Amino acid sequence: MIRQAMFAVAALLAAPALAQQPPAGHQPGRFFDATDTNKDGVLSKAEWEAAGRRPEGFAMMDADKDGKVTKEEGRAAMQKMMQQRAAQQPQ
């Protein structure tokens, strides 16, 4: 239960950054690209936190725990969060 709550909070913190379907006129990955200040194609924890994001969100996104978040990890985490949210919706 605590783990699910932590995941939900982290996902909500990351949602604006890594949403798969951005509003019209926005490019996917825009936040990611802007936050990747050294342009190495991954987000470090320092880059994540410098963008004002909480460490818990980074930990949740870093699926392989290598200290980096790729776009693929971010998208996968967002999809998982959306699936969990849909499963919790009353039918």
Results as ranks from 00 to 15, higher is better:
2 I>P: 13
43 L>E: 04
27 Q>D: 13
68 K>R: 11
69 V>T: 05
28 P>E: 03
60 M>F: 12
85 R>T: 08
24 A>H: 07
40 D>V: 08
90 P>C: 07
22 P>I: 02
78 M>E: 13
19 A>E: 14
20 Q>H: 11
27 Q>G: 03
20 Q>N: 11
51 A>K: 00
29 G>E: 03
29 G>I: 02
84 Q>K: 14
37 T>H: 08
11 A>P: 06
23 P>S: 02
79 Q>V: 06
78 M>N: 12
7 F>Y: 08
28 P>V: 00
51 A>F: 01
11 A>R: 09
52 G>Q: 14
60 M>T: 14
85 R>M: 15
17 A>Q: 02
33 D>C: 04
48 W>G: 03
77 A>N: 07
28 P>T: 00
70 T>E: 09
58 F>V: 02
78 M>G: 00
80 K>E: 09
85 R>Y: 15
20 Q>C: 11
86 A>W: 10
4 Q>D: 14
43 L>S: 02
44 S>P: 04
4 Q>N: 12
29 G>Q: 01
57 G>A: 15
3 R>W: 04
66 D>P: 06
57 G>M: 02
60 M>S: 08
87 A>S: 05
57 G>T: 04
47 E>W: 03
83 Q>D: 14
33 D>S: 12
43 L>M: 15
35 T>I: 07
16 P>I: 07
68 K>A: 09
76 A>Q: 14
82 M>S: 06
5 A>H: 11
12 L>T: 09
32 F>L: 05
44 S>C: 04
29 G>Y: 00
1 M>F: 09
72 E>I: 03
37 T>V: 13
86 A>K: 15
37 T>W: 05
16 P>G: 05
63 A>Y: 07
18 L>P: 00
49 E>Y: 00
17 A>E: 01
79 Q>F: 08
24 A>R: 14
9 V>C: 07
24 A>V: 15
79 Q>I: 06
63 A>I: 01
48 W>I: 01
36 D>I: 02
42 V>T: 09
69 V>M: 01
53 R>A: 08
85 R>D: 06
58 F>E: 08
51 A>D: 04
49 E>P: 04
61 M>E: 03
65 K>V: 07
23 P>M: 04
17 A>W: 00
70 T>A: 02
30 R>K: 13
6 M>I: 12
11 A>I: 03
52 G>E: 10
5 A>M: 14
70 T>C: 06
4 Q>C: 12
81 M>F: 15
15 A>L: 15
8 A>I: 00
90 P>F: 14
40 D>Q: 06
5 A>N: 12
25 G>V: 05
24 A>E: 15
70 T>G: 09
55 P>D: 01
3 R>C: 06
6 M>C: 12
74 G>Y: 05
33 D>H: 12
27 Q>R: 15
64 D>M: 01
19 A>N: 13
16 P>S: 05
90 P>A: 14
40 D>A: 08
86 A>L: 14
61 M>G: 00
77 A>T: 11
39 K>Q: 14
88 Q>I: 03
49 E>T: 10
62 D>W: 08
20 Q>P: 08
33 D>L: 00
55 P>W: 00
49 E>A: 12
73 E>C: 10
59 A>P: 02
42 V>D: 04
59 A>L: 12
7 F>A: 13
64 D>C: 00
69 V>K: 07
